[in-house]
């Protein structure tokens, strides 16, 4: 059983894992969450802008939104991160200081906003046209009917897809390490990778992987839960009621209605 021993030592060396655990928790997990949540938050705002531009009547809003989406969705994430992280390094230095961390977040935000924009656009366009018409028939303008009625319905529908997108961002956040992070800025992957190189053992990376799964797997199940809940919709539980009961109720209810019903 020599090979089993080798396997265990390579991947499941609990000593090496215990050694890296504090760093993975205090530095790696923290930074992965900061990067992912920040990139998602910015991505949601930008994505909504791109989506609203994308369904606009004006082609001068629609075409830039289309190009933006094609660009950031079409390029490999690593390429976008490197181009932005290194290309704007000097510019970023004057605002954020020498750390490439903010640029990494911005690059991830741009990538995710392209995907999120498409998710929002699909959601908004799936809302029945009658909703917008009902709003306009009541005298609401386009902006108001979108903001108060159409967009909220669209968002509710795409919540599962947005959670999926967050999972993708969590995984992609590992790519930021290419920009060369300070020791205190390392995310899960980089912390695990450094420890693996130092100890000559892959166990720290395995532990980093477990941390990713701890974030992503529950979310995947949350998606399924959302999906079920929003697909079936909530109804007040009630026994089947005869339509005739409603007729009777109506006759009793209103002077306006019963008055003309002799």
């Amino acid at each position: 059983m020599d090979w089993l021993n080798t396997l265990t030592r390579t991947f499941f060396d609990f000593g090496a894992m215990a050694e890296v655990l504090p760093q993975l928790l205090g530095v790696g997990l923290l930074n992965t969450l900061i990067i992912s949540i920040a990139a998602t938050a910015i991505g949601l705002v930008l994505g909504m802008v791109v989506a609203v531009m994308g369904i606009s009547q004006s082609r001068w809003l629609r075409i830039p939104a289309r190009i933006y989406t094609d660009l950031f969705r079409g390029l490999p994430a690593i390429l976008t991160i490197l181009l932005i992280g290194q290309g704007f390094a000097r510019f970023s230095q004057s605002i954020f200081g020498p750390s490439p961390y903010p640029l990494g977040i911005i690059a991830l935000s741009l990538i995710s906003s392209a995907y999120i924009g498409e998710i929002f656009r699909a959601g908004i366009q799936s809302v029945d046209k009658g909703q917008g018409e009902a709003c306009r028939a009541l005298g609401m303008g386009y902006a108001k009917s979108m903001a108060l009625v159409v967009v909220p319905q669209g968002i509710r529908r795409v919540l599962p897809a947005l959670v999926n997108q967050f999972i993708a961002i969590v995984k992609d956040s590992s790519l930021v390490y290419f920009l060369g992070l300070l020791v205190s800025e390392r995310e899960l992957f980089r912390v695990g990778q450094d420890a693996a190189v130092l100890s000559g053992n892959l166990s720290p990376l395995v532990l980093a992987g477990i941390f990713y799964l701890v974030i992503t797997v529950p979310l995947t199940h949350l998606v399924n839960y959302f999906d079920n809940k929003f697909r079936t919709g909530r109804r007040r539980p009630s026994a089947p009621t005869s339509g005739l009961k409603e007729v009777k109720e109506l006759d009793a209810a209103s002077p306006l209605i019963s008055g003309s019903n002799t």
Binding site: A134, A137, M140, K144
Partner: peptide, 27 residues
């Protein structure tokens, strides 16, 4: 000009009351 549609076009995430009240405050 009020309009009533064949398929009602009520706002599904609003209660009956909110459906009626929405345009009153927003418009």
């Amino acid at each position: 000009i009020g309009m009533v549609f064949q398929h009602f076009n009520l706002f599904p995430d609003h209660t009956a009351l909110e459906n009626v009240a929405l345009a009153l405050w927003s418009v």
